[in-house]
Design a binder for these strands. Structure first.
Lengths: 248, 248
DNA sequence: CGTAATTGTAAAAATATTGTCAAATGGGAG
DNA sequence: CTCCCATTTGACAATATTTTTACAATTACG
């Protein structure tokens, strides 16, 4: 099986339906007043309550005063660098998601982000929607922690998402990267009808947006690999005119 | 990959079922006639109703005349720059999503998009599919109707709109896509008399506008599937000369 | 009552969606 | 550069749904 490190992170960009969290407090750390103002507006119109800070030291203090649900953090900050803010906060509260804003040069390597403890990042000319999506994804991730259990079993299938391994009757089934991502998305959204469109958006992403027939083909593969009788699927059900639905 | 001119035809073949909102009007602001024409075709073949404008001033006026569901906006415009169009519109109607078309140089700075208040952006040259995907994503986000409770029960019927599942006496009843949509509309508008025309407008959409008899047939199906005694309906009532009325 | 308009109903006809496979594409490893 | 394999596309068949159509039943109303 291919290396899934990169593709998986893409799947995190989910904008999830009907999941807007009111009452969520966001701490925005950004020194450019224009950007700060714009960010505040962005999140406030989405129903978040916003706290802003302009430098690193104040950010940490503000965080300690009242723990926000998530943090949007510019890396280039006066007084205390974004890196250090990240580290300090993660040391105290490792579960609060931090989304880093950065120029491409700031994070040439993902290793850096891991070291920092950041949960996600958005690079330079970013779309507001994308930032929102990532914050939401991060929030969702923490708010329902046991969302994706590491191991899921149903029928003759057992999947270990941590190991990225799927077994059928105890024998390893090899899924390709895309198949695995699709599978995981279905498991995370069990019992819900998912349109091809949503799949393309959430699993494939924007940059490569294939035709809807591609989705069907991947469903076909998943059925062939995971269903007892692929021609009359039990788990990967089709909902005519709507999309697909996964049931355990 | 996609340079706008040719690949449009490719995206045309993309069948796009159920998901697309009927009656969605898109305002396209683009001064290059060739691109404008291509964009119009792109969105029209996907079932959107399209309004086009070639300069900034007209765009704002057109917007005020009739508010579209979303706006696709080129940044480089005569008469009034895309930036200003964006600002003006966002000042009046912050919820209408704006997707910006831009050369990479236009958005080299992350400040820009945020200040503008744009929701998303696509850089030229862009793939038609990507643009479509982003517009759809934006629409999906705003047009979310939180008014439908996820689960509704009445008589022997229980409906889970999230799972798109309807049960009668605990047994799953299979509704087709159109039946389900019709059913949902009735539930959302319980106790109110609904004319066939309204149903055709709201549930079917103007792009495929069948005869009013089609409505009757769907009511028939709903009664057969959901009523205890379909020939003397309790929930899906006929209001002679007017239309139908759903009561729980 | 009687008639015209409206609605109920079921089957046929027309469309639309999905399943499936083979071939084309494209990216990465060697 | 070439080969390999995942991915995507495109075609076509197989299904499923939507719409039309025709006619019977019902209702409104003089």
């Amino acid at each position: 099986m291919g290396n899934l490190a990169t593709p998986l992170s893409a799947a995190r960009t989910m904008t999830h339906p009907a999941e807007s969290k009111p009452n969520s407090r966001i701490l925005i750390v950004e020194d450019d007043p224009a950007v700060q103002k714009a960010l505040r507006r962005l999140f406030e119109t989405e129903g978040y309550s916003v706290e802003t800070q302009s430098d690193g030291r104040s950010a940490v203090e503000s965080f300690q005063a009242a723990t926000p649900a998530a943090i949007v953090l510019d890396l280039r900050l006066p007084r205390l660098s974004g890196r250090d803010v990240c580290k300090e906060i993660k040391a105290v509260a490792p579960t609060v998601p931090i989304i880093v804003l950065s120029a491409t040069t700031d994070v040439s390597d993902k290793v850096l982000l891991l070291e920092l403890g950041a949960d996600d990042y958005v690079t330079k000319p970013f779309s507001p929607r994308e930032l929102l999506a990532r914050v939401r994804a991060a929030l969702r991730h923490t708010s329902r922690t046991p969302e994706t259990p590491s191991v899921v079993t149903f029928g003759a299938i057992s999947a270990d998402f941590k190991k990225m391994e799927v077994k059928r009757d105890g024998k390893v089934v090899i899924l390709t990267a895309q198949e695995f991502k699709t599978f995981q998305f279905f498991v995370q959204n069990a019992d819900r009808v998912i349109s091809r469109d949503e799949l393309l958006n959430e699993v494939w992403g924007y940059q490569n947006y294939p035709s809807t027939r591609t989705v069907d083909n991947h469903i076909l593969k998943l059925r062939q690999k995971l269903e007892n009788d692929p021609s009359s699927p039990v788990h990967f059900r089709t909902v005519h005119g709507m999309g697909y639905k996964f049931v355990r």
